[in-house]
Write a protein that binds this DNA or RNA. Structure first.
Lengths: 393, 393
DNA sequence: AGAGTTTCGGAAAACGTTATCAGCAGCCGC
DNA sequence: GCGGCTGCTGATAACGTTTTCCGAAACTCT
């Protein structure tokens, strides 16, 4: 009943364990006839190699660890799916660890995975600063690729979306549909996604409309904050220049008179919260205000109106990560590779042109997911689609 | 540089490998002083046991496989999170496999996990019928627990929500807020969730209002179907008794005159789609029609109005699954255990009382997630909360 | 005090692979 | 025809644990 081993196959095929191992693993050429006999015997016995023994002997488990802050973060399931598929295609299994946003739990999980002798690690760090130590220690022992978020600088290879390009796509699009008074609802802190999107917005907005005051509110990456930000804007907005009623994390309330006609949100959750509160306040979206998000989580399709957003190239990100892990084992202190992939803009109803011209009917009739249209934005962005910035660092 | 082994610790502490193994694994009592010496040496060398070797020798990897249809199904991330936490608490690691809803891929993944010598399997089957064979084969080799969905009958232990109780909670609640013309938007097919919720609705609705014709539309578990079902209802409804315009999977269009004042959806995705289409048609929710869902996926909180739904007891489900896996290895053909846990009702705005009386202000003001109220419904349901139906089968 | 019993520690045999080493054909080239 | 290849194969030693099996003390009990 207990499964067949190499010895059994060897006995059945009348040759030695060594030969059987060789033909099955294909490590060295072996006589055609013997090989056939061995293969037949193996098939007949239903032989399945014992990964534990193989791992012990060859010091490679064919397993990679995937460590992430919270699988319930709505952007991660799609990413996890893409990653597992990419890795399984390479014949590797995936050990999953969810850290509950706690850097200490993260460190423990990383240590446990190392003890389990994973061949490599894929980490979405829970904290920009506090994850650094554990990640660096792990990176010294196995190939390690950071995904989605950063973790200090020069720690390991990393793969992420090009936030700057994404934000530029959004701003170009808003300009194209005639929005002039744009406001950014972002996230505070030094986490890479927060900081990069914030910076990209600032430089992009300045470039588009050099005279305009920058309108930037900072909170966190939650729908709750999206709602709060809208409240802050709509309660302080009319009375020009007055600071928001609450001493919230916002850096500065919009000044320069009047309310914004577009809200650029740092991710989709914020956008959903903002959209919801706008509707509760009777503000027409996109009639009066356009709303955009970032990431293209599934919910972005499901809200009404659907949310215009930046779609992360998840499959490509996963493929790059898998590719990096295939590379030769960290030879000493080689400079780390940082790969940034350009995203797509997905235009939905939340940013339709203000004065509805010809095709406005779609708004009422058939706004299903199928009608999403991936923008063929300006050429530079399209060209960048497959470009990777590979900078030594 | 390569990590310390038992031999190293033995050498450093001046005793034999066997003793070191014993004190570290705690398999047999060992002299206090020696133990201390060993522990010191181990700590000093930073010894970490090699799981591969341990697995080889003791024929147990401390690893369980988690096989699911699609991690992107919005209900699964929370479940996966709970499962990984429960299993990690038991010191087990989790190998994740996503099948893309394909039973063949599922069979492959199961085979691969078995070859990797997982101690046990947690499977959410991709298909009620077509997953059966692979699951049964696997269950013969390792402890296996089915989750969320069924897979034929008598195949393995299983843990799932009590769909009947959940549906009853919904119907009681709707009756309590004065809804009379209830309609069910469900999913066709034999999958357990679809069938059980459908049946529970039918018996519950009949019990509540014996004279009423049953109003049941069947499609699949998608927002798209929720939208389509509303169209079907609102286009055929006014003209009484006429079958829906499309020969869709619906079993029967609502008859008996007039439109429903409550839509009971078989899951949250359907509810979200239905809600969205109702709003596009200018139907007031919950003013004219109440909408309810099932599962309590994150999106149910985020829509406006928030969707009243049945919250699956994910932590408890995960705990039960982990407990079942701890049990003695399948001793022969012991009857399988089927565990059903009763869910909670989460009342949100989508099912508020029709004539808004005193507390209707909440609808405009502050409908945040914090205001969700877990219904203290009728006593029977509450009592059932922790009850497990453990039926031999 | 001697026989039984417990307690602690070591030597060594697994576990199922892969990798190393060597043997044994046959073949080439001088 | 003989040293040196080349191609295939078999023994056998790892890999790092856990787990028997045993011996040597140290106690316990008549």
């Amino acid at each position: 009943m207990t499964d067949a081993t190499l010895r059994d196959v060897a006995r059945a095929s009348g040759c030695s364990v060594a030969t059987v191992s060789r033909v099955l693993a294909g490590t060295r050429p072996v006589g055609a006839e013997t090989a056939a006999r061995v293969r037949a015997a193996a098939a007949q016995l239903g032989y399945r190699p014992n990964h534990a023994a193989r791992a012990l002997r060859s010091r490679a488990t064919g397993t990679v660890g995937l460590v992430l802050p919270q699988i319930t973060n709505p952007f991660y399931p799609t990413l996890v799916r893409a990653l597992t598929h990419a890795l399984h295609a390479d014949g590797r299994a995936v050990l999953l660890a969810d850290c509950d946003d706690d850097p200490e739990a993260e460190a423990e999980h990383i240590a446990d995975l190392l003890a389990r002798r994973v061949d490599a690690l894929l980490v979405i760090p829970a904290h920009e600063r506090r994850s650094r130590e554990a990640v660096a220690a792990a990176a010294a022992r196995v190939p390690l690729v950071l995904m989605d978020r950063g973790c200090g600088t020069g720690v390991a290879d990393s793969v992420a979306v090009d936030n700057a390009t994404g934000m530029a796509l959004v701003l170009d699009h808003l300009a194209a549909v005639g929005r002039r008074r744009v406001c950014f609802i972002g996230a505070a802190g030094t986490a890479s996604a927060a900081a990069e999107r914030r910076l990209a917005y600032e430089s992009g907005a300045a470039a588009l409309d050099p005279g305009a005051p920058d309108r930037v509110l900072l909170g966190d990456f939650s729908a709750e904050w999206g709602r709060a930000a809208v409240d802050e804007l709509w309660e302080s907005g009319p009375r020009d220049g007055e600071p928001g009623p609450e001493g919230e994390p916002g850096r500065c309330a919009p000044s320069g008179g009047g309310l914004p006609d577009a809200l650029v949100c740092a991710n989709d959750l914020i956008a959903i919260g903002a959209l919801q509160r706008l509707q509760q306040r009777g503000v027409d979206v996109p009639g009066q205000v356009a709303v955009t998000g970032f990431d293209d989580i599934p919910m972005a399709t499901l809200s009404a109106p659907g949310i215009t957003t930046v779609r992360q190239p998840v499959s490509e990100l996963a493929a790059e990560a898998a590719r990096l892990l295939r590379r030769p084992p960290q030879d000493g202190t080689r400079p780390h590779r940082t790969i940034r992939l350009a995203p797509d803009l997905v235009v939905r109803e939340s940013s339709a042109a203000r004065r509805q011209s010809g095709h406005s009917a779609r708004n009422e009739q058939d706004m299903t997911a199928q009608q999403d249209v991936t923008a063929q934005q300006d050429m530079t962005a399209q060209q960048d689609l497959t470009a990777k910035v590979e900078e030594a660092q």
